[in-house]
Structures are given as structure tokens and as C-alpha cells.
Amino acid sequence: MSDLATAHKALSIAQAIANDIAAIPAPTKAAKPTKHQRAWFAVPADRQAAALKALADHERGEKPAGSYDNASRWYPDEEFECCALIRSPSRAWPFSKLKHCLSLAHKEALHNAEHDDVLALRRVLMEHAEAIDAGLPLVTQESKAWLEALPLRQAADESAGTDLPSRKPVRL
């Protein structure tokens, strides 16, 4: 499956989670929405979609479009306002822009998402993950499958006993 198809599937399942959250019955004595769920309810639908796209893109962790120069410095194809304060790549720090382009702040700028909306979504997803770990029936099976298939969780499981690669530059 291509990365684009995976992203679309992750986005559709994330939207299903948002629908699951919206389907929570009105607050009663026994079941009140948490403060994180209330914060997510307050976000308009168009901003929810942008937050879903930004978080899915960040979780995927793909290298953005860019190019290398003859000194192996990486430059992005397009820059946003968030990139203005990042140091220009040099021979000593050739990937300064790449590191920034992989950050959540850059993904938010790329998808025109607001930081507070993305954080609200992340908090709700963490609540769902904790509910799954505790065995609470707060999410559907589709939502549970999506949370278990997040690339971040897969990478953590696969690299549990391995050493991190060295970040020292290699000389040719």
C-alpha cells in the first residue's frame, strides 16, 4: 500500500474516532466527557480536519520534498513562516532545515492547522489509548485497530531492544 493510501486510511479512521467522540451521549451523572473531549468538541469541523491531517502527517514521519546541494546540505522545496527562524544549513549542520520540516510545528503550518487543535486531538487519542490499555469500552474496534497501527507505536515495538543509530557525520 502506498504512503498516500496509508495516510488516507489513517485519516479516515481518525475521522471515525472523532465521530465516536461526537457520538458520546450527553453528560449524565455516570458519564461526563473529559476536559480533553470537551476541548475537541469546541473545535469547528474544518479545523478538526486540518488537525487530523497535520497529526497524521507528523505520525507518518516522511521526509518532506527537498533537495541536497553539492556539500550534502538539505533544503526544503517550500518554506513557511515557521521556517524563518531556523538556521540555514551549513557544512557543520547540514540537516537543520530537515529536522525542522519533520517537526509538528512545520506539519501544522503545512496543513494550516492550529497548534491548540492538534494538541486537543492528541490528548483525546491518548485518552483512548489509555482506555484501551485499561480495557475500558470507550472506542469501537475500528478505532482500536487504528490506534494499534499508528507508525509511532510500531516503531517503538520494533526498536525495543535495538540501539539507536549514531548521529555522527560520515566522512567519505
Rank of each mutant, 00 (worst) to 15 (best):
L11D: 00
I13S: 09
Q15A: 09
D20M: 01
D20I: 00
A22T: 08
P25M: 06
A26I: 06
P27W: 14
T28K: 06
H36T: 12
R38P: 01
A39S: 13
F41C: 05
V43N: 03
A45Q: 14
Q48H: 08
A49F: 08
L52C: 15
K53M: 14
A54S: 14
D57N: 02
E59M: 10
E59P: 00
Y68R: 08
E78D: 15
F80S: 08
E81Y: 03
E81A: 07
E81F: 06
C83Y: 01
R87S: 08
R87K: 11
R91W: 00
A92P: 00
F95C: 02
L98T: 02
K99F: 05
L104G: 10
K107N: 10
L110A: 09
N112I: 00
A113Q: 15
H115P: 07
V118C: 15
A120P: 08
L125Q: 03
H128K: 01
E130D: 14
D133T: 15
L136P: 00
V139D: 05
T140F: 04
W146A: 07
L147Q: 11
E148A: 13
A149K: 08
P151E: 12
L152R: 07
L152F: 02
R153M: 03
E158A: 15
E158Y: 03
S159L: 13
D163A: 11
L164V: 03
L164W: 07
R167S: 07
K168I: 02
K168H: 13
V170K: 07
V170A: 07
